[in-house]
Write a protein that binds this DNA or RNA. Structure first.
Lengths: 335, 335
DNA sequence: CTGAAAGCGCTTACAG
DNA sequence: CTGAAAGCGCTTACAG
């Protein structure tokens, strides 16, 4: 494999000139640059990664801590991972993947061995075991998700509170007075999972603010459980005319199927809104109004915030991505 | 951050002794080793990754090429990624994730910059654009999936042909004479996707061998399409008494729900078998007999085969993981 | 059982 | 606009 010396020899210059030409860190004569470019192309030269890490101040590697719980919703998770890996490439970074328990121990290992320049933490829970660790790590870190204590941390996430409020606001404006909320399986809430809890609590607060009645159910991902949940909503909210879904895609499908079986037309008999969904709701039958969980935006922003810190800008910030409402015709005014 | 010089000084030895003590590549006196261990612990020393890559022959980094298509089934994909990242850790390797088009260009980049010691290719299609590339790469590579031409390549995968044959064999032995096969969406087959095609073709061959009638449908992931597919099976196979599902979890759920609506009891009226599934079928209602797609085993084996090559053993092999049949009571003999 | 030293392939002050 | 050289922190023959 060609080294920088081979390139220098072929171009008739010194290795420092080659290095500077490649990094662009100082001006190079046009003729010189052309000869270097030609030599690089002809030899298929690519700088040795290890040498670069050792001599330079950057490794061009980013650690992505992506622990997977049994209840992790794979499609959303994958979208985040994708967005982060792609965004990293735009900064000429590659992504080292840390999973499971390695998501914690691996971080310490990567930092002390100087393998990575920065870290992105995915799926941060309110009381996340990685938070105390990264607080003492002297390296750029961005959290995707908002922990309970954000002191000194850079975080980014969808504004779940605003999303919950927006859900209630829209439906209340249509005249709905009793709105059901179908959440994730109970286990998630018990574990202190970030998104669902914030959404649930903000939803309740917004309902109080707008003076609408609500009830909250947490079905498992199976038809029987979803049916029981629907029945509970109808029982607790006799005037139920709208349902907000803050749950996985299979539960969406099941709920829509059950409503169909009950002969409830959407949106004539029931308004349905999907909130903070990471999948396309226009594949559903019928397509649902949605406040998307913008995994691509949020994940990408996580990388950008890390790169900002690498660039020297290191004021901790908590960035909340504002929610958007996309209408598909699955909600309607009460008649 | 402490360097090997700090450790050597603290332990009163040379840096080479520290290096050898840590790598275990030569015998060290007990007292010396104790002093080194103490110094390492006290200083929190961890070898610099870049220096190690440059001086040594290993980077301890593995590239995972995991392109994601629009139709990639996230949960299965994630299980593979997990299995590979975890298995890599057991060999003291970390995993660099390559996605999308980077799955191809990134490979070349990592190899020529000597960033990684080996490569695992995930989700290899029959006619995969990465295959010609890795063939000319002078680095250990293992393919998870079997391309059309395996010359010179090390591959591992579930034995889909055997899995298809096993499906037919079990149902034929129960007396079923007409067996429907529900596959993935048509697009996957058009794209030359690996698993589904191999399963479909082997299923047809096995049906011929056992003298049973079959029909093959490829519904989209939505209730209406699945209903149409079921109706097509009943129309084409008037004596339909068994269905094999080689499709995603949502389609499983939909098919079971539709059978329930039709009043068909499982297994009394219809035997149902899930083939090459990457999710737990005992969560379904009813739990289904399954021939699992052992993503954990296959993914892990992909890493092991790469490590074998790194260790010097480099005979290309195509390893097929034999299928297993797990009964859950969803099939029964024809009465 | 241990050490002195070369060398891995870069980056970056220092110098002109 | 360009070059000579130090140095990043390891590993590994070479030597004893």
């Amino acid at each position: 494999m060609a080294t920088i010396h081979d390139v220098a020899r072929a171009a008739g210059v010194s290795i420092s000139t080659v290095s500077y030409a490649l990094s662009g860190k100082r001006a190079i004569g046009a003729a010189t640059r052309d000869r270097i470019d030609a030599a690089v192309a002809q030899l298929g030269y690519r700088p040795n990664a290890g040498a670069r890490m050792l001599a330079g101040s950057r490794t061009n590697l980013l650690a992505l801590s992506a622990p997977l719980h049994a209840d992790t919703y794979a499609p959303a998770h994958m979208t985040f991972v994708l967005a982060i890996a792609e965004a990293a490439r735009e900064f000429d970074y590659d992504t080292v993947l840390l999973v499971q328990d390695e998501a914690v121990n691996g971080l310490r290992r990567m930092v002390s061995s100087k393998l990575v320049d920065g870290i992105v933490l995915l799926d941060v829970d309110r009381d996340d075991s990685r938070v105390p660790l990264v607080r003492e790590l002297d390296i750029p870190v961005t959290l995707v998700g908002i922990p309970a204590d954000t002191t000194g941390l850079t975080c980014v996430d969808l504004d779940f509170e605003a999303a919950a409020r927006l859900s209630v606001e829209r439906l209340a404006a249509q005249g709905h007075r009793q709105i059901g909320l179908i959440g994730h399986p109970e286990e998630l809430y018990a574990r202190g999972s970030n998104f669902p809890i914030r959404f649930r609590d903000a939803f309740a607060a917004a309902a109080a603010e707008f003076g609408v009645g609500t009830h909250f159910v947490m079905p498992e991902q199976e038809p029987v459980s979803v049916r029981v949940a629907l029945e509970e909503l109808r029982r607790e909210l006799p005037g139920l005319s709208a349902i907000v879904l803050n749950c996985n895609e299979p539960v969406h499908t099941m709920a829509l199927e059950l409503l169909r079986q009950d002969g409830a037309s959407i949106p004539q008999d029931m308004s349905v809104l999907s909130a903070c969904s990471s999948f396309p709701t226009d594949q559903l039958d019928p397509p649902l109004d949605v406040i998307p969980l913008p995994a691509l935006i949020t994940g990408r922003r996580g990388v950008e915030l890390t790169m900002n810190q690498l660039g020297g800008y290191s004021e901790p910030v908590v960035e909340l991505v504002p929610p958007a409402y996309i209408a598909k015709g699955s909600t309607a005014s009460v008649t």
